[in-house]
Simulated scan of single mutants.
Amino acid sequence: MKTSKTYKLQFLLLFVILALCFFTNISLGSVSIPFKSIFGSLFGSIENSTWEVIITNFRLPKAITAILVGSGLGISGLLMQTLFRNPLAGPFVLGISSGASLGVALVILGSGLFGGAFAIALASKWSIVIAASLGSFLVLMSVLAVSHSVRDTMAILIIGLMFGSITAAVVSVLSYFSSAEQLQQYIFWGFGSLSNLSWNELLIFSGIYFVGLVLSIASIKGLNSLLLGDNYAKSLGINLKKNRFIIIIATSLIAGTITAFAGPIAFIGLAIPHLTRQIFTTSNHKILLPAVCLFGAIVMLICDSVAQLPGSDYILPINAITALVGAPVVIWLLVRQRKMMF
């Protein structure tokens, strides 16, 4: 691992790009707002009250959500790729996204099978968030329970995929008995959205996100040692089970919360670690962790800005943009580099 290089210039450049993307994202939309008015709104000196409401109540929370979602998925992807030493591992390989989808499906599609109670639950604004969180939590607990009796890390990956298959089967059964309206609502949730969060919801989202971030930072030493193999990690005094547990919990908190509040957003968690390694040619997680955090936030802000269709009243699904932009990039990286840094 390269430890002597600090990459100060690269980090400075990323911070500048992040700031530009942040203010550009706030300025774009069906109503174009000049940068001067954006700065005025942030510092309490804007004359147009309509613009102030648009910025304060809609665009600013959405931009902050994009930063949290992009950085969180980038961190989760890095943790999973290092834990499983697999370049194709993403933040949802443990079945977290599938568990969230099952929870949401039970609320949205379950009324077709179970009737009134689920229909009443839909009236609550928090019902989908709570359902997604509980679904992710239950799958996480199942994976953790199995991981205590499994020594092989790759076995946990396979178990997570199997949990995903089970939940997908249940969702298929629920879909079969659901109405077209219910299916449409579920599909729209699957598109992902960054614009549905109020300041109170964003506060809760941020709190859980930062708990996961602290756990991720605490696992940096363990992540670096895992790159050299389990035996080397043991020789350094690393408790493999404890380290694996912390990494799984951190990933689940971040990715599960993102899925609950913003829906299942594809590509970012898989591709961002690879894109980051093109600029930061190191395997040291003291460098990679903050780097993927910044890079993920930048890419998500760019994708959200494209999804806005500036000057138009229409907004494209964020999942469509992340896939259209990201999938070709990942293919290009795999063809160009052939061998990933693991």
Rank of each mutant, 00 (worst) to 15 (best):
T276W: 03
L228W: 07
G269A: 06
R244T: 12
I238E: 13
L183S: 09
N239W: 03
A297W: 01
L270P: 02
S235M: 08
I287H: 00
R277C: 00
K242I: 12
A262C: 15
Q182F: 10
I248L: 15
I220C: 06
F191D: 04
Q182N: 12
L226C: 07
D230L: 13
E181K: 13
E181M: 13
G269D: 07
L226Q: 05
S225Y: 06
I287C: 00
L275K: 02
I248P: 12
I258N: 02
S216F: 07
F295Y: 02
K221P: 02
G207H: 06
K221C: 02
L215C: 06
L288S: 03
G207A: 15
L270D: 05
L223H: 06
I268D: 04
L288C: 03
L213A: 12
G237K: 07
L288H: 03
S195Y: 09
I258P: 03
I204Y: 14
F191I: 09
G237W: 05
I247A: 10
L213H: 10
L270H: 09
F210D: 10
N200E: 14
I254G: 07
A180Y: 12
F245K: 14
L275A: 04
L228P: 02
P290Q: 02
T259Y: 08
G207I: 14
S235W: 03
N243D: 07
W199Y: 08
K286G: 04
S252F: 11
A297N: 05
F295T: 13
A297L: 04
S198Y: 02
H274V: 01
F267Y: 08
A260R: 13
K242C: 10
F267A: 11
L213M: 14
F295K: 02
L288D: 01
L236V: 05
K286F: 11
C293R: 01
S193V: 09
F210N: 11
N243W: 08
A291C: 02
L223W: 00
L275E: 01
L253A: 12
L203I: 12
Q278N: 06
G256V: 09
A266C: 07
I272S: 01
A250L: 04
F261H: 11
K234M: 12
L236F: 11
F295Q: 06
Y186P: 14
A266D: 08
S198H: 02
A218N: 09
P290A: 06
F280A: 07
K242Y: 12
L226E: 03
I217T: 08
N196Y: 13
F295N: 09
N196C: 03
E181Q: 15
G229I: 09
N284D: 15
F295P: 00
Q185I: 15
A233V: 06
S225I: 04
I254D: 05
L270F: 11
L215D: 06
G263R: 11
W189L: 14
Y209T: 14
L253M: 13
H274P: 01
A218E: 03
I272K: 03
F267N: 05
A262S: 15
K241R: 14
L288K: 03
N200L: 12
S225N: 11
R244L: 10
S235D: 12
D230W: 10
I287R: 00
T281H: 12
G222N: 06
Q185K: 15
S225V: 11
I220P: 00
P264V: 11
N284G: 04
A291D: 00
F280Q: 04
G263C: 11
P264R: 15
N200D: 14
I246T: 14
I287D: 00
N224Q: 07
S219I: 01
F295D: 03
